[in-house]
Simulated assay, not measured.
Amino acid sequence: MGGDEWLATRFEENRDRLRAVAYRILGSEPEAEDAVQETWIRLSRSDSATIDNLGGWLTTVVGRICLDVLRTRRGRPELPVGEHSPVIADDGVPDPELEAVQADSVGLALLVVLETLSPAERLAFVLHDLFAVPFEDIAPIIQKSPAAARQIASRARRRVRGTPEPTAVDVVRQKEVVSAFLTAAREADFTALLEVLDPEVVVRGDPGAAAYGSRMSALSGAESVAREFSGRAKAAKLVLVDGVPGLVWMQRGEPLIVFSFTVVDGRVAALDLRGDPEYLESVDLVTLRA
């Protein structure tokens, strides 16, 4: 058996598993088939002699392809679920092959929940919890450390299981408050800062934030906090911090300190500064317009 024939045979041995992985991540049978085909194309163009673990290599490649598909999908308008997933589009003539894939795939309820996860969360959860892929292998796919991949999968698992997030936040109102805080701080508007701060506001900082010389890690009271922030935060950006409006200070495109806000009755009641490297690797940051 020639080298190409041997490689094709080994790939076919892995095809069903790769298709199951891709389908569970993407929730779309046509997209899963495309991902598997692209995996074969990449394998055929690679030097197979350098691949020690073909099954692991194929899982990594199909995972990266699926991650790219998810990120592209989030950048365009969402399709109605019936058009996107063959699980729900159950009218028409049954396809035995498709039914076999679906029988070994996620149920409708789980598929719907997976659609709410970020691409990294979805991939980490599916690969680890459904296919027992180690976090050491997942980490390079999502470009995070194994510890960060573990945290991302844990966050996804909580959402899948329906565990409530630590706080219920009015995102629109919190964005308004954080934006007002940022504007007042940049413009050194002491009065405006006092208006947006709770009289008993507290500022807390972890050792990672303190390492950058932050003097704000043990402040309390609106006047003290306003004095420290007045005229500062010029380099901070408005972002979603794990889905909640906050701020981030970045250098060369990398986050150094994340500012997480607790807003009560339209005012900042607490501000947490976090610069721990492991936290920064796992936190999900999405830029917002001010």
Score class of each variant (00 low, 15 high):
residue 210 A to R: 05
residue 229 F to Y: 15
residue 215 R to V: 02
residue 276 D to Q: 12
residue 281 E to N: 14
residue 156 A to V: 12
residue 52 D to V: 08
residue 97 E to H: 08
residue 171 V to M: 08
residue 117 L to R: 01
residue 62 V to R: 11
residue 16 D to K: 14
residue 182 L to W: 14
residue 190 F to W: 11
residue 201 V to W: 03
residue 64 R to W: 07
residue 199 P to A: 07
residue 68 D to F: 02
residue 247 L to C: 03
residue 88 I to L: 12
residue 32 A to V: 08
residue 31 E to M: 15
residue 267 R to Y: 04
residue 203 V to Y: 01
residue 62 V to Y: 09
residue 226 A to H: 02
residue 40 W to Q: 04
residue 30 P to K: 11
residue 158 R to P: 00
residue 115 E to S: 14
residue 227 R to F: 05
residue 201 V to L: 08
residue 43 L to N: 12
residue 170 D to L: 14
residue 273 L to F: 13
residue 21 V to K: 03
residue 53 N to A: 12
residue 277 P to S: 06
residue 99 E to P: 00
residue 123 L to E: 06
residue 134 P to N: 10
residue 126 V to Q: 09
residue 108 L to N: 00
residue 279 Y to R: 03
residue 155 R to G: 08
residue 136 E to F: 10
residue 272 D to A: 05
residue 129 D to R: 15
residue 236 A to Y: 05
residue 278 E to G: 11
residue 55 G to P: 01
residue 109 A to E: 15
residue 45 R to W: 11
residue 263 V to A: 06
residue 113 V to K: 13
residue 266 G to Y: 01
residue 39 T to G: 10
residue 37 Q to F: 13
residue 147 A to P: 00
residue 281 E to P: 04
residue 181 F to D: 12
residue 148 A to T: 01
residue 75 G to I: 10
residue 170 D to E: 15
residue 70 L to H: 03
residue 168 A to M: 13
residue 133 V to E: 06
residue 243 G to H: 06
residue 125 F to N: 08
residue 224 S to R: 15
residue 26 L to A: 05
residue 110 L to P: 00
residue 9 T to S: 13
residue 93 V to M: 14
residue 93 V to I: 15
residue 272 D to H: 03
residue 35 A to P: 11
residue 23 Y to K: 07
residue 192 A to T: 05
residue 80 P to Q: 03
residue 216 M to K: 06
residue 193 L to I: 13
residue 126 V to A: 12
residue 162 G to Q: 13
residue 5 E to H: 07
residue 33 E to W: 08
residue 110 L to A: 06
residue 272 D to C: 01
residue 98 L to H: 05
residue 257 I to S: 03
residue 280 L to K: 04
residue 25 I to T: 05
residue 260 S to Y: 02
residue 280 L to Y: 01
residue 254 E to R: 15
residue 266 G to I: 02
residue 211 A to I: 02
residue 268 V to Y: 08
residue 122 R to S: 09
residue 92 G to R: 11
residue 278 E to Q: 10
residue 127 L to V: 12
residue 5 E to C: 00
residue 83 E to K: 11
residue 189 D to T: 10
residue 121 E to M: 10
residue 170 D to V: 14
residue 178 V to Q: 01
residue 112 V to R: 02
residue 269 A to C: 02
residue 277 P to M: 04
residue 46 S to D: 14
residue 184 A to R: 06
residue 136 E to D: 15
residue 103 A to P: 02
residue 126 V to Y: 07
residue 63 G to E: 06
residue 89 A to M: 12
residue 92 G to Q: 11
residue 264 V to H: 07
residue 145 S to W: 02
residue 41 I to G: 06
residue 162 G to C: 11
residue 166 P to E: 13
residue 140 P to N: 04
residue 20 A to Q: 15
